[in-house]
Design a protein around this nucleic acid. Structure first.
Lengths: 144, 144
DNA sequence: TATTGTTATACTCTATAACTATA
DNA sequence: TATAGTTATAGAGTATAACAATA
């Protein structure tokens, strides 16, 4: 007899994530941003990174993809790029005041979204969820 | 004093989902498919749907987007479309033997992925995860 | 030669709007 | 007029490959 079938957890995760990420995208767009822009701003504000390669890796995209976004963000006055004096191959990316303002704006939207998302869940639930998601993450990363 | 900051659960979910969905995409592509093709095949095999509109909704995409995928799938010999005799506006979508074969192929890949994904988690963990994800889903859907 | 980043190009998925055919 | 689906077009995000500049 086959083991009792249960809905593949990957499917449940995919469905939830799809619904959540679409709603989150919409919230970010409504706040004047987008998911990649938010991730880039967040990474720039919370980590001290030496170059674009590290930034791309932290965000989870390729270098060329990051360039693509940074071009748009620079054109939009959100960031500046400055060559490192000692190693002119390296670009230092910095937020402009407008970039910081958008960061705060998007942070507010992200926070509001999160409060909505975790309605009815207490800290213990969230700890459990985080633990299991961490495990899932590790299970995938292992194979890499 | 501000409440103790915890990583927004949406961010944790987004990161896990991104990593998981990329890995899942790769697994499906390696097995000769893609995520939308898999979702369409899965929906066709597991539900009895009357028309393409319902299929699109079940998959979570727009009608025009579904047409786009079905065109490619029909060209690839995976599905056939047949007009309803009684209401010729309606298309009935059916899997060909090749479509069924790809379904089995992708189902195998999805199953293998799922086993890898849930390594180290027992049924109780998965129940808890499913429950919390269901709650998250409901929290978003509420706002729609 | 190796590293950092950019440019050029293209692919996938998705969407909206306008359209055809049918009811 | 309303409904089912298609066509045309476009946009966002991502990627690879080839390249320039620097070390």
């Amino acid at each position: 007899m086959p083991p009792p079938a249960r809905t593949p957890i990957g499917l449940v995760l995919a469905r939830t994530a799809r619904t959540a990420s679409r709603a989150f995208d919409e919230a970010l767009v409504a706040a004047g941003g987008s998911l990649p822009v938010w991730l880039i701003l967040l990474t720039l504000q919370t980590r001290q990174l030496g170059n674009q390669r590290e930034l791309a890796e932290a965000v989870g995209i390729r270098g060329a993809t990051l360039t693509h976004h940074l071009n748009a963000m620079e054109a939009g006055g959100l960031v500046t790029r400055r060559r490192d004096a000692a190693n002119r191959r390296i670009q230092h990316v910095e937020l402009t005041p407008a970039g910081e303002a958008l960061f705060r704006q998007l942070a507010g939207a992200a926070l509001a979204f999160d409060q909505r998302l975790r309605a009815g869940l207490d800290d213990r639930d969230l700890d459990v969820l985080e633990g299991i998601l961490g495990r899932l993450h590790a299970n995938i990363a292992d194979g890499q």
